[in-house]
């Protein structure tokens, strides 16, 4: 199944860093989220982009993961040539990830 069935996401930006939260609709799905949605699998959602280090933070109480993508915004919101300089469109792509059904 696709991650979109399990979780929702929001993208934020600071300078040249993007953060994408991935939040389980049901907190009880958090262990599956934590197992499946690794930093490496998030990187694989963006084969066409150059991204530096990706750090994952876990918030089991909220059923959420927070991914911090360094160097993901083409030099930063204020000078990037990108169409979506804030990277606000990025989070939705993570929800396209295939995850196991159980």
């Amino acid at each position: 199944m696709r991650l979109r069935e399990l979780a929702h996401a929001r993208t934020g930006d600071k300078g040249n860093v993007s953060n994408i939260s991935v939040i389980a609709y049901r907190v009880e799905d958090f262990p599956r989220l934590a197992r499946e949605v690794t930093a490496e699998r998030v990187r694989a959602c963006f084969p066409g982009l150059t991204i530096g280090e990706i750090v994952r933070y876990e918030l089991p109480r909220l059923g959420a993961l927070n991914f911090v993508l360094d160097g993901a915004l083409g030099g930063g919101v204020t000078r990037s040539l990108a169409l979506d300089a804030h990277g606000k469109c990025l989070g939705a792509s993570v929800l396209d990830m295939e995850v196991s059904d159980a």
Partner: peptide
């Protein structure tokens, strides 16, 4: 809960 969770982590790096 879901709108609040999304906003809690918006533009946050290390939540702690």
């Amino acid at each position: 809960e879901r709108t609040c969770k999304e906003q809690l982590l918006y533009e946050v790096h290390d939540p702690s």
